[in-house]
Design a protein around this nucleic acid. Structure first.
Lengths: 160, 160
DNA sequence: TATTGTTATACTCTATAACTATA
DNA sequence: TATAGTTATAGAGTATAACAATA
């Protein structure tokens, strides 16, 4: 047995290993995309227009809003998104995907799901679905990934 | 619906959210322990003596061996581990837990498993077991967490 | 008075490279 | 010639604080 019982019972260890393996697997898919995997997540968050302010996207991604400034700068330079003034709140910017951004996101979606299936190859098809569903429920119900707590009212409106 | 379909279908997003939530949950348990969650993982890897060289521990944890130097320095200062010469290879050091280290590990194990159950609270008991098992299999079968590929021969002997 | 976005800065984590000692 | 461990250093990623514009 190459893996001691104690260590593989640790969620922190298995999560770190799987996250690293995931990162390696999707690396070539997101290479060239500003921000890598995170750049994809910004596009995916903004595509529907429901989560479009930089702050809302930051909360969805579990990072500080200052991270989004640089990241969206790069995505804008790559002509994948545009910052537009929010008519309802002139402090906020709406992050809107360009046509190229929508195309790129579709391509990324397809290739990322493929790469992920390769990562999940050790599991049976039904097990892969189960794992995805359990992780999804945890991710959406276990609260924000941010260090600063996200109030319930904000959570309801901002997607935390 | 607060979470767009596309984003919560992304394994990278759910893994990042769950990992962050896990980190927040165990924070108070590992506060004061050198290296935090990673310090625990070193103790857990070294306890049985099968994975005792710094290099083997580094591979098990998916980090570069240089990370282990500082981390084990701290654990040694805290009297939780000792570096002992490996009689079979005088280049290598065997990382051995002290009595205090074994006690601390036992305490950490108990409290971490409790904290993790709180994290998994949104899931049914059977679902928690399923998630742990699927993640464990992925973590042990999906290859090393390290960026530098771990050769098969090494994997067999070093627990990659 | 609070919030969105920006900028500058500092901190943490990690890897790379060069070195010593062993194999 | 290759490997285990150490040290110094650099890079990526992130947060904190201060600021301007707006609510």
């Amino acid at each position: 047995m190459t893996t001691p019982q104690r260590l593989d019972a640790d969620l922190g260890w298995v999560l770190a290993r799987v996250t690293r393996a995931h990162l390696r697997t999707v690396q070539d898919v997101v290479s060239g995309l500003p921000g890598g995997p995170r750049g994809y997540q910004v596009l995916a968050a903004a595509i529907d227009g429901e989560v479009s302010s930089q702050l809302a996207i930051a909360r969805m991604l579990g990072v500080d809003r200052t991270v989004l400034t640089y990241l969206i700068d790069e995505l804008e330079r790559a002509r994948l998104v545009e910052r537009r003034p929010d008519p309802a709140d002139r402090r906020a910017r709406r992050v809107v995907l360009t046509d190229a951004g929508r195309e790129r996101l579709g391509d990324l979606d397809r290739r990322l799901r493929g790469a992920e299936e390769r990562l999940l190859a050790p599991l049976e098809p039904a097990e892969r679905d189960t794992l995805r569903e359990l992780l999804r429920r945890l991710a959406t119900e276990a609260g924000p990934g941010n260090t600063s707590p996200c109030a319930e009212e904000i959570a309801a409106t901002e997607g935390c």
